[in-house]
Amino acid sequence: MKKNLLALFSLLVIASLALAACGGGTPATEEVVATEAPASTEAPATEAPATEVAEPVEVTFWHAYGTGSAEEIALTAILEQAAIDMPNIKINVLQVPFNDLFTKYDTDVAAGGGPDFFVAPNDSLGSQARAGTIADITDLVADKLGDYSELSQGGMMYDGKMYGIPESLKAVAFWYNTDLLPEAPATTDDLKALMEGGTPIAISYGCYHHWGFFGSFGAKIFDDQFNFVTDEANQANVTSAMSYLNDLYQISVANGLPRNDSDGLAPFTEGTVAAITNGNWAMGDYRAALGDKLAVAPIPAGPGGASNPLLGVDGTAKTLKPLLK
């Protein structure tokens, strides 16, 4: 649930900044020394007008949390509390299917629409920053992100500028049901042996989800400057990793096992699959279903060393609408 709470805290940070932007500063006061007042020769002063109430603000917020998921449930609870704590801000919420989120955002913003802010992975942050479709909030959040790690802030930055408030860090791991699998496999050989022996394990195949296995075989796709690593030794390691993944894939097909995180959700939470590879965004749903039976471990190490899954950052980004300017 930590991820969920951080996501919604980001929403409240944005809303609180909106309140700060709409409000004025408190005027300075001077200390008054009591003295005997002279007799008044003027009519008594009229009563000071009541403090002006902040005008209502209406904003639109998009998210892609699944219906009924732990993330959506937590978001709903925080929005209900936000309505109490910030009664002058009306937050209109739109759930957008994740696979449509970035396309819909780009299309709607190009047509002059879209949300005021949204929560999403930083997958498209660079392209959105270059296209000028999300706002540079560097000055807006200056000195307000002290509790956020440097790594998380970096995930919401492009070219030295901040384009969102970090919500969570995420990476793919090996989740397992201890009633069905008491210990996680320590190595890639152990994992393969389990699957060959009939233990039902849902491996999520696909570039993002299986990326960590490249590290298990000592393979790199990019160097530190994001150039492709093309030397012969590295390509041999990439081939070994892909050959291993193909072996697992063939076992999955032969045994009718789920081969992506969506198809694996129900079998894992219902106890018909012993383990699944997926990101920590699914932890709330897994924990709700399995309770203390849920355990997590890294993707297994291999002959090339430890696995190295991609590290992603989700965050709340602001569009170019003038809400917080």
Rank of each mutant, 00 (worst) to 15 (best):
E72D: 08
I73R: 11
I73P: 04
A74F: 07
A74R: 05
L75F: 14
L75Y: 09
L75C: 09
T76F: 05
A77Q: 11
I78T: 03
I78H: 09
E80P: 04
A82M: 04
A82V: 07
I84L: 13
I84C: 06
D85L: 15
D85S: 14
D85I: 05
D85C: 09
M86A: 11
N88P: 02
I89A: 07
I89V: 14
I89C: 12
K90L: 12
V93W: 02
V93D: 00
L94Q: 05
V96R: 04
V96F: 02
P97T: 03
P97E: 00
P97N: 06
F98N: 00
N99S: 09
N99P: 03
N99M: 10
L101H: 02
T103M: 06
Y105P: 02
Y105S: 02
D106Y: 10
D106F: 13
T107M: 11
T107Y: 11
D108P: 01
D108S: 15
D108I: 04
V109E: 00
V109K: 05
A110F: 12
A110R: 06
A110Y: 10
A111Y: 08
A111K: 14
A111Q: 11
G112M: 04
G112S: 09
G113V: 01
G114P: 06
G114Q: 05
G114Y: 06
D116C: 09
D116P: 07
F118I: 02
F118G: 03
V119H: 09
V119M: 10
V119Q: 00
V119S: 07
V119D: 00
A120Y: 09
P121E: 04
N122V: 02
D123C: 01
D123Q: 10
S124L: 08
L125Y: 03
S127W: 05
S127Y: 11
Q128S: 13
Q128W: 15
Q128Y: 15
A129C: 04
A129M: 07
R130G: 02
I134P: 06
A135R: 10
T138L: 03
L140G: 01
V141Y: 08
A142P: 00
D143R: 14
D143E: 13
D143F: 15
D143Y: 14
K144E: 00
K144V: 03
L145C: 04
L145N: 02
G146W: 08
G146K: 03
D147W: 15
D147Y: 14
Y148N: 03
S149F: 08
S149H: 02
E150A: 15
E150M: 11
L151Q: 02
S152E: 01
S152N: 01
S152A: 15
G154C: 08
G154Y: 07
M156T: 06
Y158R: 08
Y158D: 01
Y158L: 05
D159R: 13
K161N: 04
M162W: 10
M162A: 01
G164Q: 01
I165A: 02
I165P: 03
E167T: 14
A171K: 10
F174T: 05
Y176Q: 08
Y176F: 15
N177Y: 08
T178C: 09
T178S: 15
D179G: 11
L180P: 02
L181F: 12
L181P: 02
P182L: 07
E183G: 10
A184T: 01
P185W: 13
T188K: 10
D189W: 12
D189I: 10
D189Y: 12
D189P: 09
D190P: 04
L191K: 06
L191A: 10
K192A: 14
K192G: 03
A193Y: 10
L194K: 13
L194T: 00
E196P: 12
